[in-house]
């Protein structure tokens, strides 16, 4: 006779077997390092000497460390600006390409806008450093041609982070562009047609129809974009090595400097844990707020 209890047990064991590799992966490469980082943040450790318990002194020190506070501020400003810029430009480009009548031009633009994403951040930053060079950069050349004059893109403390935002957003625009193309494709054609007949045209159509109907895409691209942008390293590092001063220094860059240049692994881990908490809180906040503005059919 079939024993239901033993069948359930066998099924549960089998299920466990299937999820085991993933669980092990998460333990080894995600949960493990996070836990180890947290433990490390409670110790002094320079690799060469034995670890020494520090308690919460790293966390106390962080509050008084002006550079750490600046880098965290820079990072949040950078991530917020990137998310806003990527959503606006990605949405606009997708809208424009969607309306291109010739399908070959549509394919062409899809590829062109996606292309920067397949390049490395380092490569992009190297040639963008030339583009935005104050003295011989092509951007300033054209600005001078039109009479605006030269801008200190990478040498001004006010402009350098903005420049990094522009470079980063330019490289990553392809992903939001593709996401929005998919979002627009999911809007039923009849709804757009009904809007035409109802008199929803131009900006009204964008704000009353397109934006609410791609709100899940905006939300997704914002969450992913923020998580990704907060971890930026290569662009500000290669563009200006974090300078001038600390104006272009981001949290991950500071973590790297503290841990691998100054060999303060405990303090580096403290910064990493704080950054992790910032990402976690921001993501939870985004999920909480989305209930009010994201529409799912």
């Amino acid at each position: 006779m079939l024993n239901i209890a033993s069948l359930k047990k066998t099924k549960a064991r089998l299920a466990l077997l299937f999820v085991a590799p993933t669980m092990l992966g998460i333990l080894a490469f995600t949960a493990g390092p996070i836990a180890f980082s947290f433990i490390l943040s409670l110790f002094y450790w320079d690799v060469l000497s034995p670890m020494k318990f520090a308690g919460l002194s790293h966390y106390n020190y962080l509050l008084q460390d002006d550079v750490a506070v600046t880098t965290l501020k820079n990072t949040i400003y950078f991530a917020v600006m990137v998310v806003i810029l990527q959503n606006i430009i990605g949405f606009s480009l997708a809208m424009a390409v969607r309306n291109v009548a010739n399908k070959y031009f549509r394919y062409f633009f899809r590829s062109v806008f996606f292309l920067p994403l397949v390049m490395s951040g380092a490569t992009v930053s190297v040639f963008m450093a030339y583009f935005f060079n104050t003295d011989f950069g092509i951007v300033n050349y054209y600005l001078e041609l039109v009479g605006i004059g030269s801008v200190r893109w990478l040498t001004s403390t006010q402009m350098v982070l903005v420049t990094t935002v522009l470079v980063y957003a330019w490289q990553h625009i392809g992903i939001t562009f593709i996401l929005f193309l998919g979002g627009f494709a999911s809007i039923p054609e009849e709804v757009i047609v009904a809007a035409d007949i109802d008199g929803l045209t131009g900006w009204r159509k964008i704000f009353y129809i397109y934006v609410p109907m791609v709100s899940p895409t905006i939300f997704f691209s914002s969450v992913i974009g923020f998580i990704h942008a907060v971890q930026v390293f290569d662009h500000p590092y290669i563009l200006t090595r974090g300078g001038p001063g600390d104006a272009n220094r981001t949290a991950v860059m500071y973590i790297y400097e503290k841990a691998f240049q100054d060999l303060e692994f405990g303090y580096g881990s403290t910064l990493a844990i704080i950054l992790f908490l910032i990402i976690l809180i921001a993501t939870i906040l985004q999920f909480y707020v989305q209930k009010k503005w994201v529409f799912y059919e």
Partner: peptide, 20 residues
Amino acid sequence: IQPKDRDVAMVFQNYALYPH
């Protein structure tokens, strides 16, 4: 003349309601 100015109203097969 634009659809909105033709003084016509249309009902669609799949309703085409604004879901939000």
